[in-house]
Amino acid sequence: MLKRVHFPASLLPYLLVAPQVFITLVFFIWPASQAVYQSLLVQDAFGLSTEFVWFENFEYLWGNQQYRDTFGRTIFFSVAVAFLSMSFALILAGFADRVIRGSTVYRTLLIWPYAVAPVLAGALWLFMFNPTLGIIPFILDAFGRDWNHYLNGGEAMFLVIIAAAWKQVAYNFLFYLAAMQSIPRSIIEAAAIDGAGPVRRFVTVIFPLISPTTFFLLVVNAVYAFFETFGIIHAVTQGGPANATTTLVYKVYNDGFIGLDLGGSAAQSVILMILVIAMTVVQFRFIEKRVQY
């Protein structure tokens, strides 16, 4: 943590940490504590009076069917995004690990979606799925399937899941490929000598050995799907139709900025903070134990 040899205490170290600490206090700690404080208040519709109500906002959320639905929907969304993009990336990484020539070329060709902003990923897929012009509804039409995500909640959900998963494939691919390439070749060769074919080796040797990476990616993907996909949902569906794609973060934004329900939005913020803290703890505990080959 600290160097054995160090500089003596003076005013200097305080000056050095000052910018970071100042920004943290003003833009992180203070707003967060405001959120906690506001979550205990109820304001009337005109903003004239506020009343301290302890945990009433939380009780209200707890009993609110809409909020519980949003919670469940967010979890479904996250699991779907994580599963889809991780399995797609795993398959591609498995094959890329196998080819001798060109695995770096494939890596280059697969990692760039990382650089695409979520909202742009949303815009791209929105165009592909545009009910009147898009290529995919056009194909579906040939099979007699009518696509309109502006009306059908399930289809809207499918669209945002695809867009969110597409962007995350790059990240998962990169980590899976790195994990597979760090497995000692002798282990793979030993399995091959024992007569295990490529598929068998993948299932019984490679996949178990990279399970730490899988857990790590699960957490990262969950955090991504919870927080960073706001842009996709805001641009593509605005949480609709009929709240079918409203996630927790979108609801905080919507209730706070559009609905101006300060107490309710703050209470939701506090719940989200608790979730982030839990995820960070899981991530850190896990990374401590991350296996090195």
Binding site: F28, A32, Q38, F257, L272, M273, V276
Partner: peptide, 16 residues
């Protein structure tokens, strides 16, 4: 203090 910022992404404290 710096560590805590990790747990407060902008999405959870939008309004304040």
């Amino acid at each position: 203090l710096i560590f805590i910022t990790l747990m407060l992404p902008v999405e959870v404290r939008i309004l304040p």
